Amino acid sequence: MSYDLYFWRSGAAEDPRRLADRLADEKADGLVPDERVLAFRAELLRRWPDLDDMIAPWHHDLGWRQPWGEGGLVDRFVALALPYGWEAMSALPVLAGSYGLDLYDPQSEQLVPPASLPQDRAVRDDVARVEGWVTEDHVVRLFRQISAYVGYAYDDLDEAALVGALDDTSDEVVDGWFEYPLAGTPTLVVRLALSPGSAVVNVRVEGTMDLVLATRIETALDLL
């Protein structure tokens, strides 16, 4: 027997019970896409990989596993079907609140919005590096996305600096990476290198990032 929980953008539900009933049938037409939902989902799976058998809706991050749900709903809500007594249950409201999401427990019919949580219970684990890859034609889009996250005014001069920057890079050589700083809040350094013989660009984003920022960057890398 499972213990069900639902997460969605805070304030999105006038009637949480009715919305949860609809989400159980994969009817999410009342919810708008929100990247914070994706970021929260990614963080859940990073912290507790065993949730890949208990999370919905389905998305490519689950690989061959398909508990239930449609991939097109992945940025609208997260549903968990947990075993009773799951070890990290108490951490979920705080983690959800840090992403601006409500938690709804249909068993007790209790809605937990971020504003109801103590302000000193923030979830913070500083992350020094995020890694992933994109194709060459998505490099500029990635820079624009990360710049928006940290408040850096990315412009045409930055774009010009990237022209030809990857030509002599290689992820097989220690000093074969191109580095570019983004002086936002926080300051990040983006390191790029081509994978020889392909259009794949390996990416390392380095700096002092909180979990929310790190997960947003991870999500951007996954989706590009």
Rank of each mutant, 00 (worst) to 15 (best):
M1K: 05
S2F: 14
D4A: 14
D4Q: 13
Y6G: 01
F7V: 08
S10F: 03
A13N: 06
R17S: 15
R18Q: 12
R18T: 13
R18G: 06
D21I: 15
R22T: 12
R22Y: 03
E26H: 10
A28W: 01
D29G: 07
D29S: 09
G30D: 13
V32C: 08
P33R: 00
P33D: 03
D34F: 00
E35Y: 04
A39R: 04
R41L: 03
A42E: 12
P49I: 09
P49C: 07
D50M: 05
D52P: 00
D53Q: 14
M54V: 15
M54G: 12
P57V: 07
W58S: 07
L62F: 05
W64D: 10
W64K: 02
Q66P: 00
P67A: 05
W68K: 09
W68Q: 09
G69H: 02
E70A: 12
G71I: 06
L73I: 06
L73V: 08
D75N: 08
D75S: 10
D75P: 00
F77R: 04
A79E: 06
A81F: 13
Y84S: 11
Y84N: 06
G85T: 09
E87M: 11
E87G: 12
G100V: 10
L101D: 01
Y104N: 00
Y104R: 04
S108Q: 08
Q110H: 13
Q110D: 11
L111G: 08
P113Y: 02
P114N: 05
L117T: 06
P118N: 07
A122K: 11
V123Q: 10
V127N: 03
V127F: 03
V130S: 02
V130Y: 01
E131M: 12
V134N: 03
T135K: 12
E136G: 10
E136D: 10
D137T: 12
D137F: 05
F143G: 02
G151R: 00
Y154K: 04
D156I: 14
D156P: 05
D156M: 14
D156F: 14
D156N: 13
D158H: 04
V163A: 13
V163S: 13
G164D: 05
G164K: 09
L166H: 08
L166D: 09
L166E: 06
S170E: 10
V173M: 08
V174N: 00
V174M: 00
D175G: 08
D175L: 07
G176R: 00
G176E: 00
G176M: 02
L182I: 06
A183M: 07
P186R: 08
L192H: 09
P196Q: 05
P196D: 04
S198T: 13
V201D: 02
V205S: 01
G207R: 01
M209S: 07
L211E: 13
V212M: 03
L213M: 05
A214C: 10
A214V: 07
I217W: 02
E218F: 07
L224T: 15
